[in-house]
Design a protein around this nucleic acid. Sequence first.
DNA 1: CGTTCCCTTGACACCGATCAACTCTGGTGG
DNA 2: CCACCAGAGTTGATCGGTGTCAAGGGAACG
Lengths: 265, 265
Amino acid sequence: MTGFQTVPHGAPGTAAYRSRGDLTHALIAKLGAASDLSASDQQAVRELCVDIRRVPAKKNILRPDERPSHVHVMLSGWAARYVLQKDGSRQIVAFLIPGDFCDLHVTILGRMDHGIVTLTPAVVGYVSGADMEELPHKRPNLLRALWRAGLIDESILRAWIANIGRRDAAQGMAHLFCELHTRLQLVGLIDDDSLPLPVTQEDLADALGITPVHANRTLHKLRAAGLIRLKGGILEIPDLPALKAFAGFTLGYLHQAQLKRTWDR
Amino acid sequence: MTGFQTVPHGAPGTAAYRSRGDLTHALIAKLGAASDLSASDQQAVRELCVDIRRVPAKKNILRPDERPSHVHVMLSGWAARYVLQKDGSRQIVAFLIPGDFCDLHVTILGRMDHGIVTLTPAVVGYVSGADMEELPHKRPNLLRALWRAGLIDESILRAWIANIGRRDAAQGMAHLFCELHTRLQLVGLIDDDSLPLPVTQEDLADALGITPVHANRTLHKLRAAGLIRLKGGILEIPDLPALKAFAGFTLGYLHQAQLKRTWDR
DNA sequence: CGTTCCCTTGACACCGATCAACTCTGGTGG
DNA sequence: CCACCAGAGTTGATCGGTGTCAAGGGAACG
């Protein structure tokens, strides 16, 4: 926690972090995906963060067993939720992208039973636990939206299990790419058939329950099959329907029947 | 749903189903595990079920894509939460035991993204969606307890992923047994180092992401190692600490720091 | 310009899948 | 009481996907 750089509220340097409103863009898009949020609800979301900090890549945002005093939300950058085994092996159980909460559960359970580590430089919002506790009473719409977001995360976990348990490495990797594509699209971070993939092959391996060596070979196999192109951290999907068919991907589990674009371009 | 036998409120035949109070025993033990429930809270839980039905073994309680009109809760028997792939393979993502909710999420998400099937004959409680919606407002204690139960289920999902992704079949199976032992103990269904295991080897295989043949061999391996004994659907654990050590099991993820026995014997 | 990640590639071993046959058990009906 | 049957468990032989170990290459960074 110490050493994280606090972001001045006004305006950091790069265009990507232009203003505080920009930073909550993904969060509002995600929460508003199911039901519309009133302007005042949206404003409440924007004012949620008592603090905003930059975190370098490969730093723990939350360690296993920690008892956080705040709720953390990803505002930019990627992170991974991981479980550490006693033998030192790591299993990534979720990728976190802007708009995702790190520890929505912690107001109830108190203690982290896993860790969260940044994969890229990130900007993290801090929400006070007290605000989080009372928000639902003041804004029932937001209670539903937050609950809904948590339940979709749970649904993603179930799909993740099926991914590891019942698909081979190539299908599993393809499925993961389809999921990331859909989620990034939902929060308005991409709008075509390519996506940023700022993770190492070791991260991919830990997410799929395979070894880094095999992740490399699987990646090559998908490339050779013409299902993906990957260079410079950008993943291109030449034929999205083909990739989805290969992976057995359906978006039912993401519960986006009512998906609509709450952002404008 | 049709064809399920409604249980008369008074008193079915067997000792196990003696009264309606008995049936909610596990549920109340589970919800009260973290924070005490007042007598009136407990009474509210008991009166939650508008209907109680018996379901034979191997019947779907909820099918994928279904839009249930009620919330379902296990009162006796075992069930499995499963994801079906397009190629027909099945991945079990959770075992449900008495006290577990089948579809707590459905008031928010509406549609099932997976199925639930009984593994044994079971008794299922039906809670009206409307009651479920308004319960939190009337009984904040119960809101917390229900939310907590859901979050622990989510935590179990993460451990399940690590189980499949980063443990070999024998360790994974051992870990599953440790989890089931702990959960059954929590709801007061066992009190020594043996537990009922009313599932087929195929069920075990689908839970661990392996084949039935390999599940069989893994079971034999654990038996040969002296870690378990299994006969007649009863699993005996001669040396629980040894099994936990072998599996790498810790109960942190079940969030039972405050575990206390709410039942009496 | 050297260090440090990260990616890549090869050879080989092993865990678990697949296919197939057989046994055991409990239930059903003659 | 016995014959039959279906579902579950058991076992062997063989195959393939992944893991493991090891070495080298390439790009970013101080």
